[in-house]
Design a binder for these strands. Sequence first.
DNA 1: TCTGGGGTCCTAGGACCC
DNA 2: TCTGGGGTCCTAGGACCC
Length: 403
Amino acid sequence: MERQILHVDVNNAFLSWTAINMLENGSEIDIRTIPAIIGGDEEKRSGIVLAKSPIAKSFGVVTGEPIYFAKKKCPELQVFRGDFEVYHNYSNKLYNLLLEYTDIIERFSIDECFLDMTNYLMGRDLKSVACEINRRVKEELKFTVNIGVAHNKLLAKMASDFQKPDKVHTLFEEELADKMWTLPASELFMLGRKTVPKLLNMQIKTIGDIAKTDKMLLVKKFGKHGQMMWEYANGIDNSPVNNKVELPKSIGNSVTLPKDLMNISEIHPVLVALAEKVGYRLRKYKLVAKVVNVQLRTKDFVDYSHQKRLPFATSSTKEILKLANEILEMMYKNEPIRLVGLRVDDLESEDEIQLSMFSSVSSKQTNLDKALDQLTNKYGAASITRASRLDIKLNNKKEKNEA
DNA sequence: TCTGGGGTCCTAGGACCC
DNA sequence: TCTGGGGTCCTAGGACCC
């Protein structure tokens, strides 16, 4: 049976949500109506554009570019900081509204959901339901969404990306030629900046060109990715709307340093803080890890990473840090470092593993982790000395200013 | 001139075993 | 002395997404 799928996509999520949060807190201005962006902190070297207002966009400001560039294009630009707690809050409001329409919702990201309406239409027309959701979100939640209406997830997602904002678009099979095949190849989901030039070299310019290309040729050239782009271009996607909350397959944190680190003794405390964060998140999910990965980025923006397997699965901060330090000693090439990252992989549920008698993690250590986790839950990460050497260093100046 | 942070999945090559 | 494959596991890096 034909499936009935919707893709709900918040228009300009970070900027819209920041705007209505400011309005709710008494702000006189709606930053959606001025040249504004949501961005990072240039002083901390994390200054990139995360979202832009329509006026900022009209000046040529694009997402992902350095704020420095954006300001050159648009001197009046006002920069606002993002707040993910606020964003999660609005994301949940949207999700709860959507739950009134179906039980089968996949939260694809903080601002995107897929809805499987197949068994929930009760005689209604799919598009009219989409229009109702669109209207209700605007009236009740004060931000706007685009909604894609289709018979699979891929086409619903492509449809929600058509004209914005505040629109409902259908993309049914008989509409492919008119609405999708005319678009440039770069518009197809999963075709990024590396693949598009390769396609251009093959005289493949539009999504329609991909659809008409011999599938085996694409497979030969791009492997599985080629198979996928051919199917997507032809509107084929059988993946189900997955409403289960999945456990993460890896957990990592990384930080760009305000100044390049010039030797390994400066990298060490960064790794301590990252291990605290990663360990805390692991334990929160009740997971244990079997692989530790350390990533470095040089001042010239060259990334490299090394990984090692743990002798036994663990969620202990101390064990993760110990191996991370070993990896760091092994890989560090005595050069200025801009970013340090720590990730754990090969995760499994904590109650699935048997506690090895030879585990070198003492119960004392486990208890220390637990005690610190409780403090973190209660007061936030900054309250913990062991965890926050880095954060203190990074935030000192800011907090002083705020105080 | 300056370039975030969180993920998932895939591939290629090397080591090792049968 | 010179010659196979197949399979698994592991690692580093790349491409893509939001």
